[in-house]
């Protein structure tokens, strides 16, 4: 029959696909699996690729990371599609726990929001006592057309933080003129836009430091500088991350034992020190602050040596992970 060779070919194709699938499943193995929903910042910064392998080795398990926006991560949790969350939206987290979706919030670490903008800094936001004053200066200069402010405009955690600061000033962004640009972009893309816009109009935006340093190290945003940085006295720019294990009573199917082990490990001395030792571009990106944690000597050392140290660059340049491209992790033995 004329169609024979085609049928044979199709069969071979299908067979190959099935063999591939079976092989794939077999290779995936029978390890315990934990599904963790988190925000893009913890994953894209390389932090999780740095700390998770240690836990996976010690507990002989596999952690599947779903890195999405904070809103989406919480939704996945509410639907019981993951075992635990690592997120940074305190009020939404409290509601999540109160509504019975999660067991409790455990503070793990924080990083910082920063105000970034053109090197020329026409608003002189650089010399501000706190972030509210920095925003006020940008507002004053924006309204007279000397600069513009680029907003995420996407209901992200960063966007919410920005709106809070404007609100503290008694300002309503919906009354702002053209100098206030609502973009709907992700953080990295917005920083790229800030760089491009700088050619015509000095621009400011609020960013998390991890994304900023990442873009900076890729040499994508040479004209965007930090104009206002987090200070201990100005807790408004502190970005707190917490872990939440899903409620086992409500979601009996979740891997509760492993999730609890992971939570305990994250807030243990070992987990916290490991977070503190993660650096990118010579900068510590996440500051562990679990209840009862005191930085050990080794992690303190790594904090103080963060500036101008040559060997930093080894840990610094080798992050870009992903795409199934594994990165050689810097040796971790120095933390002992």
């Amino acid at each position: 029959m004329r169609l024979d060779w085609k049928v044979a070919l199709a069969l071979v194709l299908v067979a190959a696909l099935i063999v591939g699938a079976v092989g794939y499943v077999l290779l995936a193995g029978e390890k315990k699996v934990l599904v963790l929903a988190t925000t893009t910042s913890t994953y894209d910064s390389g932090l999780l690729d740095y700390i998770l392998p240690v836990f996976e080795d010690d507990f002989d398990c596999e952690i599947d990371v779903i890195a999405v926006g904070s809103g989406a991560a919480m939704e996945l949790g509410k639907n019981g599609d993951v075992d635990m969350l690592l997120v940074h939206s305190p009020s939404a987290e409290t509601a999540f726990v109160n509504d019975g979706y999660g067991e409790e919030r455990n503070a793990v670490m924080y990083n910082n929001f920063i105000v970034v903008g053109s090197a020329s800094d026409p608003a002189d936001a650089n010399h501000s006592a706190n972030v509210t004053i920095a925003f006020e200066k940008i507002y004053d200069n924006g309204t007279v057309g000397d600069c513009q402010f680029l907003s995420r405009g996407d209901n992200s955690g960063t966007h919410a933080k920005e709106l809070t600061i404007w609100k503290n000033l008694g300002l309503n962004v919906s009354n702002f003129d053209d100098w206030y640009v609502e973009t709907g972009l992700g953080m990295g893309d917005l920083l790229d836009m800030c760089e491009e816009e700088d050619a015509t109009t000095p621009s400011y935006t609020l960013s998390d430091d991890a994304t900023y340093y990442q873009r900076l190290s890729e040499n994508l945003i040479p004209h965007v500088q930090i104009v206002y940085n987090y200070q201990e006295t100005d807790s408004l720019l502190k970005n707190q991350y917490s872990v939440i294990v899903l409620n086992e009573t409500r979601f009996p199917h979740i891997n509760h034992t492993l999730a609890t082990e992971f939570k305990d490990w994250m807030i243990s001395q070992e987990g916290q020190d490991l977070i503190a030792s993660y650096e990118m571009y010579g900068q510590q990106l996440f500051y562990p602050n679990a209840a009862g944690y005191t930085p050990s000597t080794s992690s303190l050392k790594s904090q103080t040596s963060a500036f101008g140290s040559e060997e930093r660059s080894v840990a610094g340049v080798s992050i870009p992970v992903a795409a199934g491209l594994k990165v050689e992790l810097p040796l971790r033995c120095d933390r002992w």
Partner: peptide, 13 residues
């Protein structure tokens, strides 16, 4: 993977 690399600013990758 392309989306992730773009989000991370690794445009070449």
């Amino acid at each position: 993977a392309i989306m992730l690399e773009t989000r991370m600013g690794n445009f070449e990758w």
